[in-house]
């Protein structure tokens, strides 16, 4: 076992973990933060995306011990005082989800995308979300949600 201290959604946690524990399993099973989900075994789908020190990562492809001393933000840390994060609100408004399974990862990656490029073109949005798979929406409304959250005009 290895002792780690991680800041998750603005709270500090110190825990004993097996070195092989994946960050996503630490978040879900030890911290009970089940908002972050697992969708694949190959690090392709992006459903598990969280922010590590402010940059998006696939939490199924990071060990919990690698996060020792670092800061993690999950989908559960976005809403403040009961107010949705603007990206969450835009996904809601634009109907950017159906089953919702990809949504936590999509939202976390979309926020990262706008942090790096505040007014992306449609093409840049699609490229920025290339590591996130959605089997329901056809992506169209997800792209519209990101455009909306970036304050850009959205063609109807």
């Amino acid at each position: 076992m290895t002792r780690i201290t991680v800041q998750v959604d603005d709270e500090s946690y110190t825990d004993e973990v097996e070195p092989r524990t994946l960050l996503v399993h630490y978040l879900r099973e030890q911290l009970g933060k089940t908002g972050t989900v697992v969708g694949c075994d190959t690090s392709n789908c992006g459903a598990c995306t969280v922010h590590l020190d402010g940059r998006s990562v696939k939490s199924c492809n990071v060990l919990a011990v690698q996060a020792d001393g670092h800061e993690v933000t999950t989908i559960e840390g976005l809403a403040k005082n009961g107010e949705l994060h603007p990206m969450q609100a835009a996904f809601h408004e634009c109907h950017a989800l159906q089953c919702g399974y990809c949504t936590p990862g999509m939202i976390m990656q979309s926020i990262d995308l706008l942090n790096e490029n505040p007014t992306p073109t449609e093409k840049e949005i699609r490229a920025g979300l290339e590591g996130n798979l959605c089997r329901c929406t056809g992506y169209h409304n997800i792209v519209r949600a990101v455009q909306t959250a970036s304050g850009q005009e959205v063609a109807s």
Partner: peptide
Amino acid sequence: VADPQIRHR
């Protein structure tokens, strides 16, 4: 290479 998340790590 890969996607943004993987390029960050």
